[in-house]
């Protein structure tokens, strides 16, 4: 009978069967209920000692009934396993949360970069086009000085090329590309690149006096700084 009780009470702790209700109500209810509390205590004590070879019947609890041998040991082992798994789960959850945060940051950056990528591509293409623009402008400037000597047909042709140059400028403008003001402006290293300095009577020191290559910005960003000649300080003359 004693063994029977042990069997039942140890069964009751982890799993509550529906028919236990009836069995307990008839004759074992008080005993089984009494058993619950000390058994929990014993398990907790066992856990706190964390000794794997916990004696299921230590002297302290020798008098208490329903302390089964192998079943109790198994229960303790299960509890220990449960605690270990819970700790492992918590760790895994934390790792997952951290990975998720990392991923969120990555996603945000990718989204922002995608927005920037378009502008970047336009800027890259434009930057490669700029030397062509420079040369076209130079060619037109060189021809303009000779214009009066050329034939009428050639002047018509030149005018056509000028229109094409203007068209190219308009295309760049439609892409958000703006030329940077240079001549007469105070020298600003954020948009101008000083190539040479020269004393000037006409301009204040640190003023751009000649544009060697035109600079451009795309949106609020610099595409290429202007290459400029800057008026030197009088003291340096």
């Amino acid at each position: 009978m004693a063994a029977d009780k042990t069997e039942k009470s140890s069964n009751r702790i982890p799993i509550h069967f529906v028919d236990d209700e009836d069995a307990g109500a008839s004759d074992e209810s008080p005993l089984a209920d009494d058993n619950d509390a000390p058994l929990e205590g014993a398990v907790d004590r066992a856990m706190s000692k964390s000794s794997p070879d916990f004696d299921p019947n230590p002297g302290l609890q020798a008098g208490e009934p329903a302390m089964g041998g192998p079943d109790f040991a198994e229960l303790v082992a299960c509890r220990a396993e449960l605690k270990r798994l819970e700790a492992a789960l918590a760790e895994a959850r934390e790792t997952a949360a951290r990975r998720q945060a990392d991923f969120e940051n990555y996603r945000k950056r990718i989204e922002r970069e995608r927005g920037e990528n378009h502008r970047q591509v336009v800027a890259d293409v434009a930057r490669k086009l700029l030397p062509v623009m420079d040369n076209l402008t130079r060619a037109l400037d060189a021809e303009r000085t000779l214009e009066s000597e050329e034939s009428k047909e050639f002047r018509h042709f030149l005018h056509g090329v000028e229109l094409i140059s203007k068209q190219l400028n308009e295309v760049l403008e439609s892409l958000g590309i703006q030329p940077i003001a240079a001549i007469g402006q105070p020298f600003d290293p954020h948009v101008h690149e000083a190539v040479v300095t020269e004393p000037s009577d006409e301009y204040e020191p640190d003023t751009v006096i000649e544009e060697i290559a035109r600079g451009y910005r795309i949106g609020d960003r610099l595409l290429r700084p202007s290459m400029v000649k800057v008026a030197a300080h009088k003291t340096q003359e």
Binding site: P189, A194, P225
Partner: peptide
């Protein structure tokens, strides 16, 4: 590193652009 008359401290590409002046 560039130090301007206005007391600005320029670093990097921008400092390099004004090196001549």
């Amino acid at each position: 590193v560039g130090f301007t008359d206005k007391g600005e401290r320029l670093v990097g590409q921008i400092a390099k652009r004004q090196a001549v002046t």
